[in-house]
């Protein structure tokens, strides 16, 4: 716990003290050290929830249902934080908070799915039925991910900076920035793991 907190503090310090301002973006580039890890977690949480949902349907253990729901709750908070930070970055660099860029669409659909899942859970009173229907919904919604991640961004032109793992296989980033970003991603994953284990 303390190690995770210290690691996070280290990352925050690195973001403000070590990372150089980026060419063309200046100090705004520091937003991505918050934006990318939260977006990363919202996707990880989505798959974690689907994994526990599948496990629940196989074994019918209530603890799997609780883990699946917990992953969604963490994912929901992360997807909101990621959307807000992304919109601020978008306003400061492209001049508008929102323009239904393919990546904005993807993240918005994630918000809709997370929201629908939580609404469904809130609407079902019986514990076993709730576990069953939410597991089925979680697995059904995970089917849309390949479409949202691989097909949709190719259908429309996007202003979003190229993701780290892009089709050309190259990484266009300053080494210090890349190292801090990767460390931030590792830290976010560690925080997620801690929250899931609580």
């Amino acid at each position: 716990m303390i190690a995770t907190a210290l690691f996070t503090l280290g990352i925050v310090a690195a973001v403000f003290l070590i990372v150089p301002p980026a060419e063309g973006l200046g100090n705004l580039v520091r937003i991505i050290y918050f934006h990318v890890p939260t977006a990363w977690l919202s996707v990880i949480a989505f798959f974690t929830s689907a994994y526990f949902a599948a496990r629940y349907l196989r074994r019918l253990e209530p603890s799997d249902d609780e883990s699946s729901a917990r992953a969604v709750k963490i994912g929901f908070v992360c997807v909101l934080l990621s959307t807000v930070s992304g919109a601020i970055f978008s306003k400061l660099t492209w001049g508008a908070y929102w323009n239904w860029d393919p990546r904005q669409t993807t993240i918005f659909v994630l918000i809709l799915i997370y929201g629908a899942y939580l609404t469904l859970r809130a609407a079902v009173n019986d514990r076993r039925t709730r576990a069953k229907v939410s597991a089925v919904y979680s697995l059904l919604s995970v089917l849309t991910v390949p479409f949202l991640v691989f097909i949709l961004p190719r259908m429309y032109f996007s202003l979003h900076p190229t993701p780290l793992i892009n089709s050309s296989g190259s990484i266009d980033m300053d080494r210090t920035m890349l190292a801090v970003l990767l460390a931030a991603l590792a830290d976010a994953t560690l925080i997620f793991y801690r929250l899931m284990r609580r």
Binding site: I113, T119, L143
Partner: peptide, 8 residues
């Protein structure tokens, strides 16, 4: 609410 994200 449940159907829309699935059929998107």
């Amino acid at each position: 609410i449940l159907l829309f994200p699935i059929v998107l």
